[in-house]
Write a protein that binds this DNA or RNA. Structure first.
Ligand SMILES: [Mn+2]
Ligand SMILES: [Mn+2]
Ligand SMILES: [Mn+2]
Ligand SMILES: [Mn+2]
Lengths: 150, 150
DNA sequence: CGCAAAATGTAGCCTTGGCTTCAACATGGC
DNA sequence: GCCATGTTGAAGCCAAGGCTACATTTTGCG
Protein backbone atom coordinates (compact mmCIF):
# COMPACT_ATOMS: atom_id res chain seq x y z
CA UNK A 1 0.00 0.00 0.00
CA UNK A 2 2.84 2.40 0.68
CA UNK A 3 4.84 3.12 -2.45
CA UNK A 4 8.05 4.90 -1.75
CA UNK A 5 6.60 8.25 -0.80
CA UNK A 6 6.19 6.93 2.68
CA UNK A 7 5.69 9.00 5.77
CA UNK A 8 4.61 12.46 4.77
CA UNK A 9 6.22 14.76 7.32
CA UNK A 10 4.13 14.92 10.48
CA UNK A 11 3.65 18.66 10.77
CA UNK A 12 3.17 18.86 7.04
CA UNK A 13 1.30 22.01 6.12
CA UNK A 14 0.71 21.69 2.39
CA UNK A 15 -0.92 18.29 2.63
CA UNK A 16 -3.11 19.45 5.45
CA UNK A 17 -3.99 22.61 3.55
CA UNK A 18 -5.01 20.49 0.60
CA UNK A 19 -7.23 18.36 2.78
CA UNK A 20 -8.98 21.39 4.21
CA UNK A 21 -9.33 22.89 0.75
CA UNK A 22 -11.00 19.72 -0.44
CA UNK A 23 -13.39 19.79 2.49
CA UNK A 24 -14.23 23.44 1.81
CA UNK A 25 -14.90 22.68 -1.81
CA UNK A 26 -17.17 19.77 -0.91
CA UNK A 27 -19.01 22.01 1.52
CA UNK A 28 -19.59 24.48 -1.28
CA UNK A 29 -21.15 21.96 -3.63
CA UNK A 30 -23.17 20.21 -0.96
CA UNK A 31 -26.10 22.57 -1.32
CA UNK A 32 -26.41 22.15 -5.07
CA UNK A 33 -26.18 18.40 -4.66
CA UNK A 34 -29.06 18.33 -2.23
CA UNK A 35 -31.17 20.41 -4.56
CA UNK A 36 -30.65 18.24 -7.62
CA UNK A 37 -31.20 15.11 -5.56
CA UNK A 38 -34.46 16.48 -4.21
CA UNK A 39 -35.65 17.81 -7.55
CA UNK A 40 -35.02 14.44 -9.17
CA UNK A 41 -36.93 12.81 -6.37
CA UNK A 42 -39.90 15.13 -6.74
CA UNK A 43 -39.96 14.76 -10.50
CA UNK A 44 -39.84 11.02 -10.20
CA UNK A 45 -42.47 10.71 -7.52
CA UNK A 46 -44.90 13.47 -8.42
CA UNK A 47 -44.00 14.52 -11.94
CA UNK A 48 -43.22 18.07 -10.98
CA UNK A 49 -40.79 19.98 -8.80
CA UNK A 50 -42.29 23.21 -7.55
CA UNK A 51 -40.22 25.77 -5.64
CA UNK A 52 -42.61 25.68 -2.70
CA UNK A 53 -42.32 21.93 -2.31
CA UNK A 54 -38.57 22.10 -2.63
CA UNK A 55 -38.44 24.78 0.03
CA UNK A 56 -40.65 22.82 2.39
CA UNK A 57 -38.67 19.62 2.00
CA UNK A 58 -35.42 21.43 2.66
CA UNK A 59 -36.77 23.50 5.50
CA UNK A 60 -35.95 26.88 4.00
CA UNK A 61 -38.05 29.79 2.80
CA UNK A 62 -39.35 29.70 -0.74
CA UNK A 63 -37.28 32.76 -1.58
CA UNK A 64 -34.15 30.93 -0.55
CA UNK A 65 -35.10 27.97 -2.72
CA UNK A 66 -35.80 30.20 -5.68
CA UNK A 67 -32.40 31.82 -5.43
CA UNK A 68 -30.74 28.42 -5.25
CA UNK A 69 -32.71 27.30 -8.29
CA UNK A 70 -31.44 30.35 -10.12
CA UNK A 71 -27.94 29.21 -9.30
CA UNK A 72 -28.69 25.69 -10.51
CA UNK A 73 -29.79 27.18 -13.82
CA UNK A 74 -26.76 29.41 -13.98
CA UNK A 75 -24.57 26.34 -13.52
CA UNK A 76 -26.38 24.38 -16.21
CA UNK A 77 -27.93 21.82 -13.89
CA UNK A 78 -31.56 22.84 -14.22
CA UNK A 79 -33.93 24.83 -16.36
CA UNK A 80 -37.35 26.28 -15.84
CA UNK A 81 -39.74 28.80 -17.24
CA UNK A 82 -41.51 31.27 -14.94
CA UNK A 83 -44.29 29.76 -12.86
CA UNK A 84 -43.75 26.40 -14.50
CA UNK A 85 -41.74 24.21 -12.17
CA UNK A 86 -38.13 23.10 -12.30
CA UNK A 87 -36.53 20.42 -14.46
CA UNK A 88 -33.05 18.98 -14.60
CA UNK A 89 -30.72 19.16 -17.56
CA UNK A 90 -28.97 15.99 -18.68
CA UNK A 91 -26.05 17.07 -16.56
CA UNK A 92 -28.35 17.70 -13.63
CA UNK A 93 -29.91 14.28 -13.97
CA UNK A 94 -26.52 12.61 -14.09
CA UNK A 95 -25.46 14.46 -10.98
CA UNK A 96 -28.70 13.57 -9.23
CA UNK A 97 -28.21 9.89 -9.95
CA UNK A 98 -24.68 10.03 -8.64
CA UNK A 99 -25.69 11.89 -5.50
CA UNK A 100 -28.60 9.60 -4.83
CA UNK A 101 -26.44 6.51 -5.16
CA UNK A 102 -23.91 7.99 -2.80
CA UNK A 103 -26.59 8.84 -0.30
CA UNK A 104 -27.89 5.29 -0.32
CA UNK A 105 -24.46 3.75 0.12
CA UNK A 106 -23.61 6.04 3.00
CA UNK A 107 -26.84 5.23 4.78
CA UNK A 108 -26.29 1.53 4.24
CA UNK A 109 -22.78 1.66 5.61
CA UNK A 110 -23.95 3.53 8.68
CA UNK A 111 -26.69 0.97 9.22
CA UNK A 112 -24.20 -1.84 8.76
CA UNK A 113 -22.04 -0.25 11.44
CA UNK A 114 -24.95 -0.29 13.85
CA UNK A 115 -26.14 3.29 13.62
CA UNK A 116 -29.88 3.64 14.33
CA UNK A 117 -31.90 4.25 11.14
CA UNK A 118 -33.14 7.72 12.09
CA UNK A 119 -29.64 8.83 12.98
CA UNK A 120 -28.17 7.20 9.89
CA UNK A 121 -30.46 9.23 7.66
CA UNK A 122 -29.63 12.35 9.62
CA UNK A 123 -25.86 12.02 9.52
CA UNK A 124 -25.78 10.70 5.97
CA UNK A 125 -27.33 13.93 4.78
CA UNK A 126 -24.10 15.69 5.70
CA UNK A 127 -21.54 12.92 5.37
CA UNK A 128 -22.49 12.03 1.80
CA UNK A 129 -20.97 15.24 0.48
CA UNK A 130 -17.54 14.33 1.77
CA UNK A 131 -17.28 10.78 0.50
CA UNK A 132 -14.76 10.59 -2.32
CA UNK A 133 -14.81 8.09 -5.13
CA UNK A 134 -12.20 5.97 -3.43
CA UNK A 135 -14.11 5.93 -0.18
CA UNK A 136 -17.34 5.16 -1.98
CA UNK A 137 -15.67 2.21 -3.63
CA UNK A 138 -14.41 0.98 -0.27
CA UNK A 139 -17.90 1.35 1.17
CA UNK A 140 -19.37 -0.71 -1.65
CA UNK A 141 -16.77 -3.41 -1.19
CA UNK A 142 -17.52 -3.45 2.49
CA UNK A 143 -21.21 -3.83 1.80
CA UNK A 144 -20.40 -6.77 -0.45
CA UNK A 145 -21.69 -5.16 -3.55
CA UNK A 146 -19.70 -5.61 -6.72
CA UNK A 147 -19.63 -1.99 -7.82
CA UNK A 148 -23.43 -1.67 -7.74
CA UNK A 149 -25.21 -2.89 -10.87
CA UNK A 150 -28.52 -1.30 -9.78
CA UNK B 1 -40.02 6.87 20.93
CA UNK B 2 -42.87 6.40 18.51
CA UNK B 3 -46.10 7.29 20.23
CA UNK B 4 -48.91 6.61 17.87
CA UNK B 5 -47.45 8.52 14.99
CA UNK B 6 -45.89 5.38 13.61
CA UNK B 7 -44.38 5.05 10.19
CA UNK B 8 -43.52 8.55 9.10
CA UNK B 9 -45.03 8.92 5.64
CA UNK B 10 -42.59 8.22 2.84
CA UNK B 11 -42.66 11.67 1.28
CA UNK B 12 -42.47 13.19 4.72
CA UNK B 13 -41.33 16.77 4.54
CA UNK B 14 -40.84 17.78 8.14
CA UNK B 15 -38.50 14.91 8.97
CA UNK B 16 -36.49 15.55 5.86
CA UNK B 17 -36.43 19.26 6.58
CA UNK B 18 -35.07 18.53 10.03
CA UNK B 19 -32.34 16.37 8.59
CA UNK B 20 -31.27 19.07 6.18
CA UNK B 21 -31.42 21.66 8.94
CA UNK B 22 -29.11 19.54 11.04
CA UNK B 23 -26.69 19.17 8.16
CA UNK B 24 -26.71 22.92 7.56
CA UNK B 25 -26.04 23.58 11.20
CA UNK B 26 -23.14 21.12 11.24
CA UNK B 27 -21.75 22.79 8.15
CA UNK B 28 -21.89 26.11 9.94
CA UNK B 29 -19.86 24.97 12.93
CA UNK B 30 -17.39 22.93 10.89
CA UNK B 31 -15.11 25.87 10.33
CA UNK B 32 -14.84 26.81 13.99
CA UNK B 33 -14.19 23.18 14.86
CA UNK B 34 -11.30 22.97 12.46
CA UNK B 35 -9.82 26.13 13.90
CA UNK B 36 -9.93 25.02 17.52
CA UNK B 37 -8.59 21.61 16.56
CA UNK B 38 -5.70 23.17 14.72
CA UNK B 39 -4.96 25.75 17.38
CA UNK B 40 -4.87 23.05 20.03
CA UNK B 41 -2.52 21.07 17.84
CA UNK B 42 -0.18 24.01 17.30
CA UNK B 43 -0.17 24.91 20.98
CA UNK B 44 0.59 21.35 21.93
CA UNK B 45 3.31 20.79 19.38
CA UNK B 46 5.02 24.15 19.22
CA UNK B 47 3.77 26.07 22.24
CA UNK B 48 2.24 28.84 20.20
CA UNK B 49 -0.49 29.31 17.62
CA UNK B 50 0.26 32.22 15.31
CA UNK B 51 -2.26 33.47 12.77
CA UNK B 52 0.18 32.99 9.92
CA UNK B 53 0.77 29.35 10.79
CA UNK B 54 -2.92 28.74 11.20
CA UNK B 55 -3.57 30.28 7.81
CA UNK B 56 -0.88 28.23 6.13
CA UNK B 57 -2.07 24.97 7.64
CA UNK B 58 -5.64 25.65 6.56
CA UNK B 59 -4.69 26.91 3.14
CA UNK B 60 -6.31 30.32 3.48
CA UNK B 61 -4.99 33.87 3.56
CA UNK B 62 -3.83 35.23 6.88
CA UNK B 63 -6.58 37.83 6.76
CA UNK B 64 -9.18 35.11 6.54
CA UNK B 65 -7.63 33.35 9.51
CA UNK B 66 -7.58 36.52 11.55
CA UNK B 67 -11.24 37.16 10.92
CA UNK B 68 -12.08 33.61 11.93
CA UNK B 69 -10.00 34.03 15.07
CA UNK B 70 -12.02 37.13 15.87
CA UNK B 71 -15.13 35.04 15.62
CA UNK B 72 -13.64 32.36 17.87
CA UNK B 73 -13.03 35.07 20.45
CA UNK B 74 -16.50 36.48 20.00
CA UNK B 75 -17.91 33.03 20.67
CA UNK B 76 -15.80 32.53 23.77
CA UNK B 77 -13.63 29.76 22.35
CA UNK B 78 -10.35 31.62 22.17
CA UNK B 79 -8.57 34.68 23.44
CA UNK B 80 -5.53 36.60 22.37
CA UNK B 81 -3.81 39.89 22.81
CA UNK B 82 -2.52 41.86 19.83
CA UNK B 83 0.59 40.38 18.21
CA UNK B 84 0.73 37.69 20.86
CA UNK B 85 -0.68 34.50 19.39
CA UNK B 86 -3.93 32.71 20.03
CA UNK B 87 -4.98 30.63 23.01
CA UNK B 88 -8.03 28.56 23.75
CA UNK B 89 -10.44 29.17 26.59
CA UNK B 90 -11.47 26.23 28.74
CA UNK B 91 -14.48 25.86 26.52
CA UNK B 92 -12.27 26.00 23.44
CA UNK B 93 -9.98 23.33 24.84
CA UNK B 94 -12.90 21.06 25.64
CA UNK B 95 -14.24 21.49 22.13
CA UNK B 96 -10.82 20.84 20.64
CA UNK B 97 -10.47 17.60 22.55
CA UNK B 98 -13.89 16.47 21.41
CA UNK B 99 -13.21 17.39 17.81
CA UNK B 100 -9.84 15.73 17.80
CA UNK B 101 -11.25 12.50 19.23
CA UNK B 102 -13.96 12.49 16.62
CA UNK B 103 -11.44 13.07 13.87
CA UNK B 104 -9.37 10.11 15.01
CA UNK B 105 -12.33 7.78 15.24
CA UNK B 106 -13.59 8.75 11.80
CA UNK B 107 -10.18 8.15 10.26
CA UNK B 108 -9.90 4.81 12.01
CA UNK B 109 -13.29 3.68 10.81
CA UNK B 110 -12.47 4.65 7.25
CA UNK B 111 -9.20 2.76 7.48
CA UNK B 112 -10.99 -0.25 8.93
CA UNK B 113 -13.35 -0.16 5.97
CA UNK B 114 -10.43 -0.31 3.59
CA UNK B 115 -10.08 3.31 2.58
CA UNK B 116 -6.50 4.24 1.63
CA UNK B 117 -4.78 6.32 4.36
CA UNK B 118 -4.35 9.47 2.28
CA UNK B 119 -7.98 9.38 1.23
CA UNK B 120 -9.15 8.58 4.74
CA UNK B 121 -7.48 11.70 6.07
CA UNK B 122 -8.93 13.72 3.23
CA UNK B 123 -12.51 12.59 3.59
CA UNK B 124 -12.43 12.55 7.38
CA UNK B 125 -11.70 16.25 7.36
CA UNK B 126 -15.21 16.82 6.07
CA UNK B 127 -17.08 13.80 7.40
CA UNK B 128 -16.09 14.37 11.01
CA UNK B 129 -18.35 17.39 11.26
CA UNK B 130 -21.43 15.35 10.48
CA UNK B 131 -20.92 12.46 12.85
CA UNK B 132 -23.45 12.64 15.66
CA UNK B 133 -22.94 11.29 19.14
CA UNK B 134 -24.95 8.18 18.32
CA UNK B 135 -22.93 7.52 15.21
CA UNK B 136 -19.68 8.16 17.03
CA UNK B 137 -20.70 5.59 19.62
CA UNK B 138 -21.51 3.07 16.90
CA UNK B 139 -18.14 3.74 15.29
CA UNK B 140 -16.36 3.11 18.56
CA UNK B 141 -18.25 -0.12 19.14
CA UNK B 142 -17.37 -1.17 15.63
CA UNK B 143 -13.72 -0.47 16.27
CA UNK B 144 -13.91 -2.60 19.37
CA UNK B 145 -13.13 0.17 21.72
CA UNK B 146 -15.11 0.34 24.91
CA UNK B 147 -15.96 4.04 24.83
CA UNK B 148 -12.31 5.02 24.43
CA UNK B 149 -10.26 5.19 27.63
CA UNK B 150 -7.30 6.75 25.76
C1' DC C 1 -66.74 34.59 -15.30
C1' DG C 2 -64.56 36.80 -11.42
C1' DC C 3 -61.89 36.87 -7.62
C1' DA C 4 -59.50 35.15 -3.45
C1' DA C 5 -55.91 32.26 -2.25
C1' DA C 6 -51.80 30.07 -3.30
C1' DA C 7 -47.63 29.96 -5.73
C1' DT C 8 -43.96 32.35 -7.68
C1' DG C 9 -40.79 35.89 -8.24
C1' DT C 10 -38.14 40.32 -6.67
C1' DA C 11 -35.91 43.36 -3.62
C1' DG C 12 -33.32 44.38 0.12
C1' DC C 13 -31.11 43.13 4.41
C1' DC C 14 -27.78 40.35 7.19
C1' DT C 15 -23.86 37.07 8.24
C1' DT C 16 -20.22 34.14 6.82
C1' DG C 17 -16.12 33.15 4.60
C1' DG C 18 -13.27 33.97 1.00
C1' DC C 19 -9.95 37.51 -1.15
C1' DT C 20 -6.53 41.75 -1.81
C1' DT C 21 -4.45 45.84 -0.27
C1' DC C 22 -2.51 48.72 2.94
C1' DA C 23 -1.06 50.19 7.62
C1' DA C 24 1.08 49.26 11.98
C1' DC C 25 3.95 46.64 14.81
C1' DA C 26 7.98 43.50 16.34
C1' DT C 27 12.29 41.60 15.77
C1' DG C 28 16.65 39.77 14.10
C1' DG C 29 20.94 40.98 11.79
C1' DC C 30 24.10 44.05 10.88
C1' DG D 1 20.64 51.18 17.74
C1' DC D 2 18.29 50.97 13.22
C1' DC D 3 15.98 49.20 9.84
C1' DA D 4 14.46 45.43 6.52
C1' DT D 5 11.62 42.00 6.76
C1' DG D 6 8.10 39.33 8.47
C1' DT D 7 3.87 39.21 11.20
C1' DT D 8 -0.28 41.07 12.48
C1' DG D 9 -4.28 43.71 11.99
C1' DA D 10 -7.93 46.65 9.51
C1' DA D 11 -10.55 47.86 5.62
C1' DG D 12 -13.14 47.03 1.80
C1' DC D 13 -14.70 43.99 -1.92
C1' DC D 14 -17.33 39.88 -3.44
C1' DA D 15 -20.46 35.64 -3.63
C1' DA D 16 -23.30 32.46 -1.15
C1' DG D 17 -27.03 31.42 1.54
C1' DG D 18 -30.16 32.66 4.90
C1' DC D 19 -34.28 35.77 5.99
C1' DT D 20 -38.70 39.06 5.55
C1' DA D 21 -41.64 41.93 2.97
C1' DC D 22 -43.88 42.98 -1.06
C1' DA D 23 -45.36 42.40 -6.01
C1' DT D 24 -47.03 39.57 -9.58
C1' DT D 25 -49.05 35.58 -11.72
C1' DT D 26 -51.82 31.31 -11.77
C1' DT D 27 -55.33 28.69 -10.39
C1' DG D 28 -59.29 26.82 -8.26
C1' DC D 29 -63.92 27.57 -7.02
C1' DG D 30 -68.38 29.51 -6.22
MN1 LIG E 1 -27.09 16.06 1.82
MN1 LIG F 1 -28.81 13.33 0.39
MN1 LIG G 1 -12.54 19.10 9.47
MN1 LIG H 1 -10.30 17.48 11.67
Amino acid sequence: MADDKVAAPAGDATGEAARHATARSARASALLHDYVELIADLLESTGEARPTDIARRLGVSHATAIKAIARLKREGLAHSKPYRGVFLTAEGQALAAEVKARHRVVVDVLLALGVPPEVAEMDAEGIEHHVSEATLAAFERFLGRARTPD
